[in-house]
């Protein structure tokens, strides 16, 4: 027999509202049409720049045996492609709503609030994911990036998805810190620079000096960019897929736990002052 009173605070989970949140977010992003051109334009220019940089470096030095010139240009191009969806501040709505106080009304709605942020962020990311189609075509036709076999591509796609989730939770944790301090834009930018460098987005981590490598692999950033990228260019062989993706999964679980704890502690701190 079901109880007469359902606990008010835990709404039953239905998927539809969240799908709708994601659709709204996509439509919102689509209104910034000029950003489409700047995203694609800056992608092309940056791949072009990195190709010139790697070409110059490979011409005057002994090439590393793990990566040919073409492989490293492919690496950079794919890293920038991933950046189109990875470098988005998906859950900034949380920070914005904490700033202007509108989060208070979200708590009154019959939704699970963190899922709302996930849906909203996913919608935004999906819109940018559409840009991957022209950008990938450019990478293939103009920069002639290497395309691995279907098995490697599938492993890359899975690892990319895991990397995306690591990035999502890291982003959520940062935006959650707005519960305690409002000045987090600078901290977020700092984390972005560190991700670019220590995640292997700019320079493959295997080219880092040995003593730095131990330290880098202890950080979550490598699980975001480096793992899928090294799978793509074949530096990580199929025999190690299980191990590296398992590590990504460990990061996801760990960061999800931290996210949950922070969300619980933070949402209890909400004090609505007038308004």
């Amino acid at each position: 027999m079901t109880g007469a009173v359902e606990p008010r605070r835990r709404p039953r989970f239905r998927l539809e509202p969240y799908v709708e949140f994601a659709r709204t977010a996509m439509a919102r992003e689509a209104t910034y049409r000029f950003d489409v051109f700047t995203t694609i334009g800056s992608f092309v220019v940056r791949v072009y720049l990195l190709r010139m940089v790697w070409t110059a470096l490979y011409a005057h030095n002994a090439a590393p045996h793990e990566l040919s010139r073409r492989a490293i240009i492919t690496y950079s191009a794919v890293a920038l492609l991933m950046g189109i969806v990875m470098d988005i501040d998906q859950t900034r709505a949380l920070k914005d709503k904490l700033h202007d106080g509108s989060i208070a009304t979200d708590f009154l709605k019959p939704i699970i609030v963190p899922f709302y942020f996930f849906a909203d962020g996913t919608g935004e990311v999906l819109f940018h994911a559409v840009l991957l189609i022209p950008a990938t075509l450019i990478a293939l036709l103009i920069f002639h990036i290497i395309v691995p076999g279907p098995g490697v591509l599938a492993a890359f796609a899975l690892s990319f998805l895991l990397g995306y989730l690591v990035g999502f939770f890291l982003n959520f944790i940062l935006n959650c810190s707005a519960f305690w301090t409002l000045e987090i834009s600078a901290v977020q930018l700092i984390v972005t620079w560190l991700t670019d460098l220590f995640g292997g987005e700019l320079i493959p981590l295997i080219l880092f000096p040995a003593f730095l490598q131990n330290f880098i692999y202890a950080l979550p950033f490598a699980a975001m960019f480096s793992t899928p990228l090294l799978i793509y260019v074949g530096v990580i062989p199929p025999s190690r897929y299980f191990e590296v993706m398992g590590l990504q999964l460990v990061w996801i679980v760990g960061l999800a736990i931290v996210s949950t704890l922070m969300w619980r502690a933070g949402s209890r701190r909400i004090v609505v002052q007038g308004g």
Binding site: V53, A56, L57, Y58, H60, N61, P64, L189, I190, W193, L194, D196, L197, L202, I203, L207, F208, P209, L212
Partner: peptide
């Protein structure tokens, strides 16, 4: 961090490839 990570990136690249067009 912004300038530090830029210089660090140069150092990492040039510790592996000692010469960039001389």
């Amino acid at each position: 961090v912004y300038h530090g990570s830029s210089i660090a990136a140069l150092w990492i690249v040039l510790s592996r490839f000692p010469s960039m067009n001389g």
